Simulated assay, not measured.
Amino acid sequence: MSTPFQSPPGTPEILVERLREAGYAAEAVEEATGGVVAVAGLVTLEGGAQVFAKTILGPDSDVFTVESAGLAELRSRGGVNTPDILCVSPRLLVLERMRPRRDEEHFWEQLAHMVAALHMSTVTERFGWHRDGWLGRMRQDNTWETDGHAFFAERRILRWLPEPLVEAAFDREERRALERLCASLPELIPPQPPCLTHGDLWQENIVATGDGAPVLIDPAVSYTWPEADLSMLWCSPRPAVAERFFAVYREIAGLQDGWEARMPVLHLRELLSTIAHGDDDWGAAEAVREIARPFRTRPAEPARPER
């Protein structure tokens, strides 16, 4: 069971203070919204330069060192555009400023080329990573495993069931249905070699350089099935033009038949994480029930009276 971070209040003062401690003189902070872990924002420094910075409250942790290591690995091993890391400590992460993306076909085609190259160039033999990571405020178990179905079952689905809010969301039979689904993963997901994945590839983690090229931020990296990355983008809100991403990715990297039908199963990790973080007001629990419904046991039929 995970111990979540303390939820930060919506105030940038602590961020300004910790920037000052690290040698950055902040003149203004445009606070970012939507995050669940950090106090973050676009910071204007004395002299006019801008950086993106974030801090967390509560005890020091390795969340920023893990994030920076993930960004570095995506760039060095996978050729992914990521922000330059300007400062990292247990309390502070300072990154190169990026720009909002422009949702045009060319952008999503570029992104497809970048993600396909990441997946195709980093194929390996083991699932996991050399250290555990974070997904939101909670630990991501990246213990090495040679069996991809066992890895996804234990580290990405069943790992969430003991979390208090997940326990409260599902009854015993619903949890057993998820366990049966996990036992059936070899029949649901065809064998695929692991590769380096971003791990949290939805639209809010896709931004752009100054000249408009795609950039990935806020990773939860591990070596796992490439379709796990695709499921995050497929099943999360996305602009209509993002359909071009899947068409181009399929042309470059290929996808095994039935990939669209597998996306919801691979998205279970995100749905369960959403519930565990207390953010289920948009229906994540019902989505989990629908995915697991075929694995519920059927009630016994009543005996027919003899004639």
Rank of each mutant, 00 (worst) to 15 (best):
T146N: 14
R250N: 14
S7T: 13
S7D: 06
E46S: 15
E17L: 07
F52I: 05
P186L: 14
G47V: 08
V207L: 08
Q256K: 11
L118T: 08
P162N: 14
D218G: 03
I56R: 03
N205S: 12
W108C: 00
W129N: 02
V37K: 00
L92Q: 05
T33F: 08
E260R: 15
F152Q: 01
D60P: 12
T274P: 00
H198E: 03
S231T: 02
P100W: 10
L185M: 06
P193A: 13
R156K: 14
L230W: 02
H198M: 05
T65D: 10
R156T: 07
P294K: 09
F295E: 06
S61W: 06
G136S: 11
T33A: 10
S7L: 15
G283E: 09
A253Y: 05
G79D: 12
V166I: 13
A253P: 07
V166R: 03
L230A: 01
G34T: 09
N81C: 14
A117W: 03
W282R: 12
D60V: 10
L71P: 02
I206N: 02
F295P: 05
D200P: 02
V215L: 07
P239R: 03
I157R: 04
T65M: 12
N81D: 12
P214T: 01
R175K: 15
R238H: 11
F127Y: 13
P302G: 04
T55I: 11
L178A: 06
R77A: 15
A292V: 06
G212A: 07
T55R: 10
T33G: 07
A287N: 10
R101E: 07
E13M: 06
R99I: 09
Q110S: 14
F127G: 01
G136L: 13
L158Q: 05
L181A: 09
R176A: 15
T3H: 10
P12E: 03
A300N: 12
D280Y: 14
R99D: 13
P83H: 12
V207M: 02
L86Q: 07
T3W: 07
E67L: 13
F127V: 03
V207E: 01
A228I: 05
P226S: 02
C87A: 13
R296V: 10
I157H: 03
R137H: 09
H267W: 06
E270Q: 15
G199A: 04
T209V: 08
